[in-house]
């Protein structure tokens, strides 16, 4: 369905994506895993043909660099956060994208129905909650029924309930035969949706594997939300990333994913750098049958994998 060969994208002298190759079968789901700056977003933009890159990507046999428009007609794209004209009403936004994607009449309301936004047509985009915006983005992506859905950290700005909704919708889409590519730094999502995981680090593909191999022994991965009492969260996040943790920041605090057995590690890492964790909270469990003690060291260098 999608074929990428030695994709390279440099910004100045820094390679955001550096020689990545992979391919995806129709109907499967591929997760892109890596910390911020690993190249997930750049790879997705290359895939959409919206940035220039070296190498070759084909979607459904179509070269995205030479026939990007046709290739994009096969892809529904859900951004990290829907950025759209805030004054527009849902109905008119949907109508616009429906006409742009040559959707059938009625596709707009069907798509809204599918993501649970039916009845909100008169609302303005700016009045939607984060979760609703994300569902709207999904609805737009589903217009004209494309075979591929590409999602760039679709749940990163959502609360637990919103995340659950989106993941559930995606699971259904996958079941209906769509090919999914999604970037995520939440192991629970990767585990519950992904057939395969591409592990990216500093633009390089370090592993092309399955979630089960990436986290073979864990019983569960948990997300801790740390309350640093006003300390510099950016700095703390950097420290934790440096220690190999998946971290992200949102408006409510600093979240770090960690296996159940090693919940204390982030706290001690921060303590060693004199950052006090005032409180922490376990956000959710990933119910998954697995055994073993902790995530396998995923950061061993692999060659690029076909």
């Amino acid at each position: 369905m999608i074929n990428a060969e030695r994709v390279v994208k440099k910004f100045g002298r820094v390679a955001a994506v550096d020689g990545v190759s992979f391919s995806i079968e129709p109907g499967s789901a591929l997760a892109l895993w890596g910390s911020n700056g690993a190249g997930k977003t750049t790879l997705i933009r290359s895939l959409l043909g919206v940035i220039r890159f070296r190498g070759k990507i084909t979607v459904d046999g179509i070269d995205v660099r030479r026939r990007g428009k046709l290739a994009r007609s096969r892809i529904g794209y859900v951004p990290q956060e829907l950025a759209f004209h805030d004054d527009a009403r849902l109905a008119s936004s949907m109508a616009f994208f429906a006409s742009l994607r040559r959707a059938e009449p009625g596709a707009a309301s069907a798509a809204l129905e599918k993501v649970g936004l039916a009845g909100h047509e008169r609302k303005r985009v700016r009045d939607l909650s984060g979760g609703m915006k994300q569902r709207l983005a999904l609805a737009i992506a589903l217009l004209a029924d494309p075979p591929i859905i590409v999602l760039d950290e679709p749940t990163s700005n959502l609360d637990a309930a919103g995340r659950g909704d989106v993941v559930e919708t995606l699971r259904k889409l996958k079941a209906s035969g769509k090919t999914l590519i999604f970037a995520s730094h939440r192991p629970d999502e990767v585990i519950s949706l992904g057939d395969r995981v591409l592990v990216l680090e500093k633009g390089r593909l370090v592993s092309d594997t399955s979630p089960a191999e990436l986290w073979p022994t864990e019983k569960a991965v948990q997300t801790l939300r740390l309350d640093l009492g006003g300390a510099d969260e950016e700095a703390a996040a950097e420290i934790l990333r440096g220690a190999g943790h998946a971290v992200h920041l949102n408006g409510r605090g600093l979240c770090v994913s960690v296996s159940r057995e090693r919940r204390g590690v982030p706290l001690s890492v921060l303590a060693s750098r004199s950052i006090e964790v005032r409180n922490f909270e376990i956000l959710d469990d990933v119910r998954r049958e697995a055994d073993g003690s902790g995530p396998k060291q995923a950061l061993t260098a692999h060659g690029s994998v076909r």
């Binding site: 008119s92 949907m94 109508a95 616009f96 009625g106 309301s109």
Partner: peptide, 10 residues
């Protein structure tokens, strides 16, 4: 005005 498809819906 809104383009045609969605209006029909409404």
């Amino acid at each position: 005005r809104d383009p045609a498809p969605i209006r029909r819906e409404r």
